Structure formats: C-alpha cells, structure tokens
Amino acid sequence: MPDFDAPIPPEYAGRRLDRALAELLPDYSRSRLQRWLADGALTVDGATPPAKTPVAGGEHVRLFVPAEADDGDVRPEPIALEILYEDDDLLVIDKPAGLVMHPGAGNADGTLQNALLNHDPELAALPRAGIVHRLDKDTSGVLVVAKRFAAHRQLVADLAERTVKREYEAVAVGVMTAGARVEAPIDRHPVDRKRMAVREEGREAITEYRVIRRYRAHTHIRCRLETGRTHQIRVHLAHVRYPLLGDPVYGRRLALPPGASAAFSEVLRGFKRQALHARTLGLTHPISGEAMQWQAERPADFQGLLDALAVDAEEASAR
C-alpha cells in the first residue's frame, strides 16, 4: 500500500510542486521529495512532472517510501533463485516451499529478500527489494518482483485494482461436490494474533475455487484470488470446512480413507506443509503494456502427493 495517497489541497494552487509537496509531507526534506519524484517513487496524477511545475490543486499525490533505514540491515546472501523471466523492470521467480519472503521475527536472514539483494544489489533502493506481493513460507510458486520504482508503483496499483491474475493449485481435505465462490471478510484472529480469521469487521476477501479431481477423501482444486489478504486461501477453505491438506495452522487431523495402504499413509503423514502452489501469474507489463503470463510447475512433493492420491483411488476401485 502507498505510504501517502491523497490530493493536493485547492489552497496550494499556484505554488511550485516541490514546495507544495514539502508542505503536504513535512516529515521529509524537499531535496528528498525531489529525488523521489525524479526516481518515480512519488507521483502526481500518475506522472513525474518537474519539481518547478506550478500546481492547480486537486492533483493526486501517491508516495511509496523507498526502503532505506528499515531495510538497511538486510544483507545480500548467495541463495539460488529459479528465475522464470527477467527484464529491466521485472523479475519473475518460482519460489520454493520453505523460503521466507523477508526478514522478521525468527527469520533474521536466509530469506527471499536476502537472495534478491544478492542477485541485483540495485534492488536495495526499492521497498523490500522490490517485493510487491507475498507467498507464505510453505507455499510454493510464481511471484513477481519489481526492479524499478515506476514498475513497483504500477504493480502495486494493479494488485489493488485486481487486474493481476493469480491462480493456485491446492489439495483440500474432504470430497467437494462442486466449486464455489467464497466472499468472507478476513482480519486478525481476536485471540491468536499470528492467525487470521473470517470476521465481520475484516477486509473484503474473495476466493473462487474449482474442482480438478476428486479422490477418496481429498479434492484437487484450482483457486483464483480476487483479493490478496494474508493466508486468504487457507482461511477461506477452512471456513467452508475443506481445509488444506498439511496446513499446520488452519487444518485438521490427518484423514486416512478406509483401507489406505501403508505407502499411501506414509505419503500423507510425510507432507508437512500446506498443499498450496501458486501455479499461474498473469499481468500487464507495468512499462510496456504487454499482456504476460507465467506458470510454475508443481514441485516434486506436490506432484508426488497427487500421484499417491491417484494410486490410492485406483487401488480402491479395483478392490
């Protein structure tokens, strides 16, 4: 979200833009605001006019404060990245399960942000090294990183306007009869602040899911996000009583279908993360305007889980 997002008051009409901005944003020096305007971190009506431009009043100012002091302790680390696409403005990667997005409590290093700074040191000038959306630590799949301020600004706006296509594959516990659309607001859990929950006073959250294949006690589904709340798919599926297989926070006890083989039981017990994979990402290139889309292949553990579910279903039908 922008750090500042508001119009220039009408009474500022006739002032130089940099002076109007200095009054509107008194926490920052005029020289810093001028630099951010030139770099594209600060925009006026979506553009970056010269600092001496006179204002009319009513122009919309949006500021994404570049990560400087907050991210100053994040150091580059030689962590391998699986790059799906890269140009001057974008970096699209396939994130493995187990990789945390950025440093925080309990994860001082070894994160995606550390890896990004090693891959391209210039990303240090951007908030969280250009990360504009996130995947949970144990969710695998495709995500996009901005490499320049202008791209970062536009991608954040596109996410807010819901023009970025994000589709996931998941394995839910239970046999679904059909897909559905879940519209249920999400907020912090009232007691456990590390969890999210469906709450009436929460922020709008919309998830659509469709059945790919049903198994004996599970369902392979495709999910599409219209909004991007924390833990959204996990919370919504638990809310409709089809939690993700392996979800340690929102899941339920392991469900083994009758007559499950020892090998199949071992696969289910051995799947220690939520069965969620960000399969497809589609967007309009923030600079060129070209429609682009990428897919991240299922990781080995996810594919192995699907294979085991299929074998169990075939063995059961042959009995």
Rank of each mutant, 00 (worst) to 15 (best):
D94L: 00
D94R: 12
K95D: 12
P96M: 03
P96I: 06
P96E: 04
P96K: 09
A97I: 10
A97M: 13
A97S: 14
A97D: 02
G98I: 03
G98N: 02
L99M: 15
L99G: 03
V100E: 10
M101R: 01
H102Q: 04
P103T: 09
P103V: 07
P103D: 12
P103G: 00
P103H: 01
G104T: 05
G104C: 07
A105C: 11
A105H: 12
A105W: 06
A105V: 12
A105M: 06
G106K: 01
G106M: 02
G106D: 06
G106P: 05
G106W: 04
G106A: 05
G106T: 12
N107S: 06
N107K: 11
A108K: 14
A108R: 14
A108G: 14
A108D: 14
A108Q: 14
A108L: 14
D109C: 13
D109M: 02
D109T: 12
D109P: 11
G110Y: 02
G110I: 01
G110M: 01
G110Q: 12
G110H: 01
T111L: 04
T111K: 05
T111S: 06
L112I: 05
L112D: 01
L112E: 12
L112T: 10
Q113G: 02
Q113F: 06
Q113P: 13
Q113N: 08
Q113L: 11
N114P: 01
N114I: 12
A115V: 03
A115W: 10
A115P: 09
A115T: 04
L116Q: 00
L116T: 12
L116D: 07
L116S: 05
L117D: 05
L117C: 08
L117S: 08
L117E: 10
L117R: 07
L117I: 05
N118I: 05
N118T: 10
N118S: 15
N118H: 15
H119K: 07
H119T: 07
H119S: 09
D120W: 08
D120N: 13
D120L: 11
D120T: 03
P121V: 00
P121Y: 11
P121L: 06
P121K: 07
E122M: 09
E122Q: 14
E122Y: 12
E122I: 02
L123G: 02
L123D: 02
L123H: 07
A124W: 09
A125G: 15
L126H: 03
P127T: 05
P127L: 01
P127M: 09
P127E: 04
